[in-house]
Simulated assay, not measured.
Amino acid sequence: MLSIFDGLREVTLASVMVRLFLAVLCGGLIGLEREYKRRPAGFRTHILICLGAAMTTMTSQYLYLNLHFYTDMTRMGAQVVAGIGFIGAGTIIVTGRQRVKGLTTAAGLWAAAIAGLALGGGFYEGGLCVTVFVLAAELVFSRLEYWLLEKSPEINLYLEYSSRETIDRVLDLCHERGVKALHMEIARHTSGDKHNACAIFTLRLHKKCKIEMLLPVVAAADGVVSVKEL
C-alpha cells in the first residue's frame, strides 16, 4: 500500500473530500471516453454512479464507526453492485438489424460503481488502478478488438431483398467464390403479392475473398435492395 494515503484511511472531513474528488475524477475519466464515442451513458452518468457508490461505502463506514450501528458494513455496497445492473441494462439495445449495442457501456458503468465503492472505502490504490485498466480496455484494447474483427473469417451480412429468388442468387454467388454460408435468419417479411424482406447471413470467408470484394458483388445481384456488414 502507498504510504501517501495512510492519513486518509480514517473517515474524516479531509478523507471524505479526497474520496469524493477521486470518485468524480475516476468516473469522469471513464465517462469521457464513452461521451467521445457518443454512447448512451457518458460523462455525467459515470460521475454520478461512481460518486454515489463512493458515498454508499462511506455511509456504511460512518454508521458503523461513528454511530455504532452494528450492522453488516458490506450490505449497502452489495446493493449497489446488484442495483447497477438496472442502469446498465438500460444502455443495452437490440437494433432493427439484430445488433446488440451498449454492452461495453454497461460493463463500464458497473466498473465505475466498483471503483467508487473502493474509493469510498479508502482503498485508493484499487480505485485508481481499476480506472487505469478500464481506460486501457476501452481505449487501447478496443484497437486490438477491431483488428481481430478485420482478420476474422466469419462475417454477418444484413440483406434487404425484394423477391424470393434473391436468396438463391446470393447463395449461388457465395458458393461460386468459395464462401460458406453458416447460418441464415429471416428477420421480417410481409405477406401479399410483393415479398419485401430482410435476412441476416453468417458467412465464412477464405483468405482470397475479402469482405470488400464480396459486398459489391452481392449488392449488384438482382433483387437486392441493400446489403451491409453487421
Results as ranks from 00 to 15, higher is better:
L2V: 08
S3L: 05
I4P: 12
F5K: 12
F5W: 15
D6N: 12
R9M: 03
T12S: 13
T12F: 07
L13M: 15
L13C: 09
A14F: 14
V18H: 08
L20K: 12
V24I: 15
R39T: 09
P40E: 10
P40G: 10
A41M: 08
G42Q: 05
G42I: 04
G42N: 04
F43E: 05
I47D: 09
L51G: 06
A53W: 01
A54L: 10
T57V: 04
M58I: 11
T59H: 07
Y62L: 05
L63M: 12
Y64S: 01
Y64H: 12
L65P: 02
N66I: 08
L67W: 00
D72A: 00
D72L: 00
R75V: 01
M76T: 00
F86E: 08
F86V: 14
I92W: 04
I92R: 04
R97N: 08
R97Q: 04
V100F: 14
T105M: 00
A106P: 01
W110F: 01
W110S: 01
A111E: 09
A112E: 06
A112D: 03
A113W: 02
I114R: 02
G116D: 02
G116M: 07
G120M: 05
G127Q: 13
C129Y: 15
V132D: 15
F133C: 15
L135W: 01
E138T: 07
S142M: 00
E150K: 03
S152E: 02
N156A: 03
N156R: 12
E160S: 13
S162P: 13
S162A: 14
R164H: 14
R169M: 14
V170D: 06
V170Y: 05
C174T: 10
H175W: 03
H175P: 02
E176K: 02
G178K: 11
G178I: 13
K180E: 11
A181V: 05
M184R: 02
M184V: 07
R188P: 09
H189V: 08
T190R: 15
S191F: 15
K194E: 14
H195Q: 08
A199M: 03
L203E: 10
L205A: 05
K207P: 03
K210D: 06
I211L: 05
E212Q: 06
L214M: 12
L214C: 06
L214D: 07
V217C: 07
V217E: 14
V218C: 04
A220C: 09
A220H: 14
A221I: 04
D222W: 12
V227K: 10
